[in-house]
Design a protein around this nucleic acid. Structure first.
Length: 843
RNA sequence: GCGGAAGUGGCGGAAUUGGCAGACGCGCCAGCCUUAGGAGCUGGUGGCCGCAAGGCCGUAGGGGUUCGAGUCCCUUCUUCCGCACCA
């Protein structure tokens, strides 16, 4: 009896798996069905934390389960290696970003191997390598050719002291992360954008295809993110001065007779013209500047107090002819709609608050279809529902939905408006004024303007040996050898683009690269990718529900148009896992509550850690880390190991034969109990893997099976060795996707042939298969029926499971404990749920 | 602010389809074993009342639908996540 020694066992089996290349995926394997299991690639921050560990443990359990079910499984890993933290490390400590990144990758790779995750390491990729990022550039050039990439002015966070652009993360409560007394300003610069909005409808339609495979909440979030809304544009002519009419976008044209102002975004192009020549214009300009310099962050913008000022100008409501004041308001977004809205205080809450603050009139033009009519003197908030129009000229009396259509049509006919669909989705700004990212492959030529670099010039390499200061212009602008180049068109002098790409580009297509990671002629081979795609199961944190996943879907649609892939959605099934918490808050460096994965593996063994992360909570929910909880998992694995060791010697020579299942007619009572429990467990654990993914209940069920085995000791009496061998082998196989090392060891101790994990690129080398359950062996002979009176439990009876419904009801009513309670009262009805319950309803 | 979730014993959680609330584990209590125990084994463990049999209460709060509600509906509250330059 050696006892359970996780460190020894885990090293042993990891070595054997590696020697046998057990997890290699086979391209185009004709013998097996493919299964592509993928976890979101990590940013190599240095420590593999519990969030990663949880993600990979879930994915690994699924990959291993699918292999046991006979699939050719692709289960790769890579590194999302570009990004801000490497650059910050360089600024703070002078370590070159590549060095810092690669050291982190090496460290995290060691931890991944220590946990026995069944990756195909031959397909490992790192996005900061030119072999990878050249294809980012290639995709960019394809988009440039198709006018899907373009330049426009856009706002960035600007630190006047650093003289540099800041990421949102570097803006802390409106101040620069380096200078907490310097307020961050907003500044407009020319940047590159991708026309994701052109695919807004395609992305919406794709949601239909994803329904069922993706979590409902993620699809709803994406749908709201795209935010399609049908509305109308209406032109308000400007009075007294010659300024082009102000176009407002509204989804509620039916409320237009209630307009009390036109509100413009501080960035609206007509604002300067409107302010010119207005008395007191100087003070207004100052207010405008203050608004324009506010943070770029949406949540700060949205919670900021609503402020505005009257421009001194008026516009004309094209429907009523009324003169309405033109205001500038901070809550009107330049990027959405037309950057101008009509304020209808009575029927829009934001407008109501704005009007209350600044004393604008509130005019009711919609009355509820039912209930008490609105009264201005009793109003405490806007009435935003549809209703019936009042005080609306010729439209008075119409219902809102009719009015919306008719008024938009009339506006079009009269030439001052039209129905229009808008989206909340904005084009994807991909320019970053930073070093550690993919160089954008364009040059600026004096004669030819913006010119894309030729494919034969790729990759445009990121220069090494660059000193990063975190100050001034984009780091690449200071590298002469990089900056100065020639124009691909004319050969004349030209300058390279010095912005790099958003790292979301890297992660938008990386999963295709895994199918063909060393290809130097194309991002990937079409046929190979076609074999592996779509991704059967993608697993990652819910924080990526919107951005990463919508960008990835967008890329797929572009790739489809480029003829690289035939599908339009890359991911068939998505699973969003919960976070790992410590003491109720997210584990993070800033909180100082990180539990490192490697420390835990050293203390308990990785199988214990894997088991605990699966057991402590269902995977989609947040997981509270508990040191005591993990002790319980350790204890359980020790208990199972001792149980198997105790009986292994006797069972070793017995052949494992699934086909000769137990015949209940000749089975002992103990055998019946154990075989039933085993098949019930198999059935439910299989269901957990196939449908529910509630590994916490799978483990609870396996614990129950172990408890039952312990309760039936001594197991060398009244249990045939062949039966016990099947039971224990099934137990070990059920554990193996979750705790693979201890399972392999127990499989070997039991004298079973081969290994549980084998195959990979050398299939047919004795891999164990997931044992099927037999329905007839899960059935109990007797069932307990709950007897209720008026829905309250009053008794229980044990009946033959074959007993009919009516007989069961009769037995229940005449039961010795029930009869006295029923006696003399009138039975209204008796409700019966077969094999579960009888409810007697008394008057 | 907008969008998305969640709320069940001392704790993590279970209840898969509207049908015994608290599976499984942690912790705690008692006993056994042991030279010893932060090891192992056995049993107990939602609250209140009761010697017991048993009864009543109980799934964030309030209301509703139903023979029956943790589960469905309405409403209030609290917490967490995302919001486009962190990844």
């Amino acid at each position: 009896m050696a006892g359970y020694d996780p460190q020894r066992i885990e090293a042993k089996w990891q070595r054997i798996w590696e020697e046998r290349d057990a997890f290699g995926a086979v391209d185009q394997d004709p013998a097996r069905q493919k299964y592509y299991a993928l976890e979101m690639l990590p940013y190599p921050s240095g420590t593999l934390h519990m969030g990663h560990m949880r993600n990979y443990t879930i994915g690994d359990a699924v990959a291993r389960y699918k292999r046991m079910c006979g699939y050719n499984v692709l289960h790769p890993i890579g590194w999302d290696a570009f990004g801000l933290p490497a650059e910050n490390a360089a600024i703070k400590r002078g370590v070159p970003p590549r060095e810092w990144t690669n050291a982190n990758i090496a460290q995290m790779k060691t931890v991944c191997k220590r946990f026995g995750f069944s990756y195909d390491w031959q397909r490992e990729i790192s996005t900061c390598e030119p072999e990878y990022y050249r294809w980012n550039q290639w995709f960019f050039l394809r988009m440039l050719e198709r006018d899907l990439a373009y330049r426009k002015l856009s706002r960035v966070n600007w630190c006047p002291q650093c003289q540099t652009v800041l990421a949102n993360e570097q803006v802390i409560d409106g101040f620069c992360w380096q200078h907490d007394t310097t307020p961050v300003e907003s500044k407009e610069i020319e940047q590159w954008f991708l026309r994701i909005t052109q695919y807004a409808d395609a992305l919406l339609e794709g949601i239909q295809e994803l329904a069922g495979g993706w979590p409902e909440r993620v699809l709803i979030m994406q749908q709201n993110w795209i935010g399609k809304s049908r509305g109308a544009r209406v032109e308000f002519a400007v009075a007294d001065v010659s300024v082009p009419p102000l176009e407002v976008f509204t989804t509620r044209i039916d409320t237009i007779y209630g307009v009390s102002a036109v509100l413009l975004s501080p960035a609206h192009p007509s604002v300067p013209q409107l302010l010119a020549g207005v008395p007191g214009s100087g003070s207004l300009q100052k207010q405008l500047q203050a608004m324009q310099q506010r943070s770029v962050k949406m949540e700060e913008l949205a919670t900021a107090e609503k402020v505005g000022f009257f421009t001194g100008r008026f516009a004309r409501n094209p429907f009523s002819g009324e003169r309405v004041p033109i205001w500038v308001a901070n809550f009107v977004l330049a990027e959405y709609g037309t950057g101008a809205v009509m304020a209808v205080p009575a029927h829009d809450q934001r407008d109501y608050e704005f009007a209350t603050k600044y004393g604008l009139p509130v005019k009711i033009v919609i009355q509820p279809s039912s209930g008490a009519p609105l009264r201005k003197d009793r109003m405490t908030e806007a009435y935003v529902e549809y209703g019936r129009l009042v005080d609306s000229g010729p439209y008075t009396g119409l219902a809102s939905d009719q009015a919306v259509e008719r008024m938009a049509a009339d506006a079009a006919a009269k030439g001052f408006g039209r129905a229009e669909t808008t989206y909340r989705l904005k084009d994807w700004g991909i320019s970053r004024q930073r070093y550690w990212g993919t160089p954008i492959p364009v040059v600026y030529c004096r004669d030819h303007g913006v010119v894309g670099v030729g494919d034969d010039q790729l990759p445009v390499r990121l220069p090494e040996n660059v000193t990063l200061t975190g100050q001034g212009k984009s780091p690449l602008a200071n590298v002469k050898e990089f900056l100065q180049t020639t124009c691909p068109n004319c050969g004349g002098p030209a300058e390279r683009e010095t912005d790099t790409m958003d790292t979301f580009i890297d992660s938008s297509w990386y999963f295709y690269r895994y199918t063909d990671p060393r290809n130097d002629r194309a991002p990937f081979d079409k046929a190979t990718a076609a074999y592996w795609f779509q991704i059967d199961q993608y697993i990652g944190g819910v924080e990526h529900a919107i951005l990463h996943l919508i960008y990835a879907r967008f890329f797929c649609k572009v790739m489809n148009e480029l003829g690289l892939v035939d599908h339009r959605e890359p991911i068939q099934r998505l699973f969003s896992q919960g976070m790992v918490l410590k003491d109720g808050v997210k584990m993070s460096k800033s909180k100082g509550n990180i539990v490192g994965a490697i420390e835990m593996a050293d203390k308990y063994g990785c199988d214990t850690g894997r088991m605990y992360t699966l057991f402590a909570a269902p995977p989609e929910k947040d997981l509270e880390w508990s040191e005591q909880g993990i002790e319980g998992s350790s204890r359980f694995l020790n208990r199972v190991f001792r149980l198997v060791e105790r009986h292994a010697e006797r069972l070793r020579p017995v052949a494992l034969d699934w086909s000769s299942q137990t015949d209940f007619a000749r089975a002992t009572a103990k055998e019946k109990i154990l075989v039933r429990k085993t098949h019930q467990t198999l059935k439910r654990v299989t269901n957990d893997f196939e449908a529910r993914w509630h590994f916490n209940t799978s483990i609870a069920l396996i614990m129950e099976l172990v408890n039952e085995l312990t309760a039936q000791e001594p197991l060398d009496r009244e249990v045939a060795p062949a039966v016990l061998k099947r039971v224990l082998s099934a137990l070990v196989l059920m554990l193996s996707p979750m705790t693979p090392h201890i399972a392999e060891e127990m499989w070997e101790i039991l004298g079973n042939p081969g290994t549980i994990s084998a195959g990979g690129r050398t299939p047919g080398s004795g891999m164990a298969v997931w044992p099927p359950y037999r329905e007839d062996l899960t059935q109990e002979e007797q069932v307990e029926i709950i007897i209720q009176i008026n829905g309250r439990v009053r008794g229980k009876i044990l009946v033959d499971s074959s007993l009919g419904e009516d007989e069961t009801k009769d037995l229940a009513v005449s039961d010795s404990r029930i009869a006295p309670l029923v006696g003399g009262k009138q039975i209204t009805k008796v409700i019966s749920v077969p094999k579960k319950l009888v409810n007697i309803v008394l008057k």
